[in-house]
Amino acid sequence: MQLSTLVIALLTAVLVWTLLIRRLSAKPWIQAGAIDAAHNAGPTTLPAAKIGLWIFLGVITSLFALFFTAYMMRMDPHHAAGVTWVPFDKPAFLWVNTLLLILGSLSMQWARTGESQGRINTLKTGLTASGFCIIGFLVGQIVAWNQVREAEFFALTNPAVGFFYLLTAVHGLHILGGLWVWAGATLRIWRADKVISASLTVELCTVYWHYLLLVWLILFGLLLST
């Protein structure tokens, strides 16, 4: 629980600082008048979709932080209930999946660079490659799931097993959601006249993949070390 509180506190602090602290000390009843652009304390100039994505990432962070907290609380050997936690070796296949996810992020980054430099072929290749990697990751996760299912130690009452499936499933669902957006962007780009309007989407997709990679690395580390 301490972890989640810390994360929330951090997120709140960041939010509060970037958006509010500087501005909440203003006395709005003074200076009736137009606010000119130079002293603009008005809306930031970032695209709305980007702000929306970052806020969404904040929500997802909260979600995973809470899942990880629940994981660690359930595992706590000092807690009377934790005694039934039986750690198990995670399938080696997960390393393959991790590699695929890294490649996916890299390809997406490459695609984005291509897009910003106007090199459409790079963009298209990068997009395709990242798609394959990510889909490969999901397939690989299912392979890992099956490996655990067939293993001797498999028992759903073992929370280590339960959490393994739960956490990877939640992560996987978020990947799926990202794939949906990726698919939309890819389709638009293949219809050459829509490349410009997809620029923002490509950028946001890249941020999202990198984020989910980060979450995966933390999750994977957690699974490996417990």
């Binding site: 509010l20 606010i35 304390a41």
Partner: peptide
């Protein structure tokens, strides 16, 4: 927010 509408 429209022009002039600061948070405060």
């Amino acid at each position: 927010r429209c022009r002039g509408m600061t948070l405060m």
